[in-house]
Nucleic acid binder design. Structure first.
Length: 423
RNA sequence: GGUGAGGUGGCUGAGUGGUCGAAAGCACAUCUUUGCUAAAGAUGCGUAGCCUUAACAGCUACCGAGGGUUCGAAUCCCUCCCUCACCGCCA
């Protein structure tokens, strides 16, 4: 969430920065300012009354010790108690309301974030490799997957429902090999610590990373336990340090985590998409960093490069785009998307979204660090997929398909997969 | 799931209704002194909010969480959560 002091001191600047986003947040800013004034007035009044009560109660104690009668003074202070309760309730209501409002205001896009209103205005940052040439008509991964007994969409529907899939045989093995390839790369080459977190989290975790309260309809929820299935490993992993003060020496913190991800995709237009492109459950290796504010933009570049390395090693053609202010995520200040080429689809697929959240998430989850002067400061959090699995699977299978319907396994993966070819 | 014990500042640990935000020790920081792989002493050392500010200071809240009793709660009462131990169940 945004710092209330920033909003209080520079309301116009805040509104202007938010104006680049889709949606109107100026009125929310005004509302927060109004409630902030109310809240502080009530708070000040409450504290003054409490101070009075403390002072008088102390006097009563002393008087009683001296054997004096205190009934008159007790009656007086009883009245103060009533008023404290009344004004205190007002202050608490205003405080809760202010927090709610702050939680529903998105992050300010960074100055460096390109201005634009829709995805069409996202600038292309760089391109790696070229679209592969085929001497035949490349097939779709669903066709290849069915022919080779790797993907069973009917079984997914049978046991759970649409947009769930069963991987089997070489498909299951390839998925598993990809996961360990990604984890090994990031932990041994890029300096990330491997994390295997719980897949169910408390609501405060989702609030910390920004999914709640606004996007509650997108996550699976178990009401009996009040636990949520994670939509991304970003949630449990970033929240490892919720309510903590991290020592400076530990920064930057770098975590890599493989988890399945669960998304309801409520109201999503893409749910009808064929194959693995948009599932309710998919695997992902997520990269998370916690850094000082001074270094976070540099860390975003290295995090993105770490994710790109995956595609380079696998020899998959991709491009990197930067999201404009109108397309950027709720909590993000700056975001790169990595899109891999899928020949069978004839389109680029988003396999990674690398974002710098600035202090937005850290403030929500009360995460701080001690700087060199021993002062508590708010760090920056970043995350990016390194990478999303189902779509990486698609790109790999479609790119390396052969005329006879078999699939070659790229050199870098063979050790993990155990053979050079499927089919 | 059952029974028992317990949750106090970075750590250990006192504190059962009134100058307790909390003794003492450890750790840490600065300074002083003696000196040399250290010792002694002094001072400081939690978090958040409010009010002010050039800065200091001041005030309020926080002793697992939330309620209650009281003029006044770390301390009494209720509910919940968590930790540990043992038992039960179990991949």
């Amino acid at each position: 969430m945004l710092d209330i002091r920033l909003i209080r001191d520079n309301p116009d600047q805040v509104k202007q920065r938010l104006a680049g986003r889709s949606g109107d947040f100026a009125s929310l800013v005004d509302e927060v300012l109004a409630i902030d004034t109310q809240r502080r007035a009530a708070e000040t009044e409450r504290q003054k009354l409490q101070s009075d009560r403390n002072r008088i109660s102390k006097e009563i104690g002393i008087a009683k010790k001296n054997g004096q009668d205190t009934s008159a003074i007790e009656t007086e202070v009883r009245g103060i108690g009533g008023r404290i309760e009344e004004i205190g309730r007002e202050a608490d209501v205003a405080d809760a309301r202010q927090r709610d409002l702050l939680l529903s205001i998105p992050n300010l896009p960074h100055e460096a974030c390109p201005v634009g209103s829709t995805a069409e205005e996202n600038p292309e940052v760089r391109v790696w490799g070229v679209k592969p040439d085929f001497a035949f008509q490349p097939k779709d991964h669903t066709v290849l997957g069915a022919a080779l007994g790797m993907l069973d969409f009917e079984a997914g529907v049978k046991i759970t429902g649409s947009a769930f899939v069963v991987y089997r045989g070489a498909g299951a093995r390839l998925e598993r090999a990809l996961i360990s390839f990604l984890l090994d790369l990031h932990t041994t080459q890029h300096g990330y610590e491997e994390i295997s977190p719980p897949l169910l989290v408390k609501p405060e975790c989702l609030e910390g990373t920004g999914q709640l309260p606004k996007f509650g309809d997108q996550v699976y929820h178990s009401p009996e336990d009040n636990l949520y299935l994670i939509p991304t490993a970003e949630v449990p992993v970033t929240n490892l340090h919720r309510d903590e003060i991290v020592p400076l020496e530990k920064l930057p913190i770098q975590y890599a985590a493989y988890t399945p991800c669960f998304r309801r995709e409520a109201g999503s237009a893409g749910l009808g998409t064929r194959g693995l492109i948009r599932m309710h459950q998919f695997d992902k290796v997520e990269l998370v960093k916690i850094t000082t504010p001074e270094t976070s933009m540099g860390e975003l570049e290295s995090l993105t490069a770490n994710a790109e390395k995956v595609l380079q090693l696998l020899g998959l053609h991709y491009r990197v785009i930067e999201l404009c202010t109108g397309d950027i995520g709720f909590g993000s200040a700056k975001t790169y998307d990595i899109e891999v080429w899928a020949p069978g689809q004839g389109t680029y697929l988003e396999v990674s979204s690398c974002s710098n959240f600035g202090d937005y998430q850290a403030r929500r989850m009360n995460l701080r660090y001690k700087d060199e002067n021993g002062k508590n400061r708010i760090p920056h959090t970043l995350n990016g997929s390194g990478t999303a699995l189902a779509r990486l699977f698609v790109a790999l299978v479609e790119t390396y398909q052969q005329a006879d319907g078999s699939i070659l396994i790229p050199e870098a993966m063979r050790g993990h997969f155990g053979s050079a070819k499927i089919g």
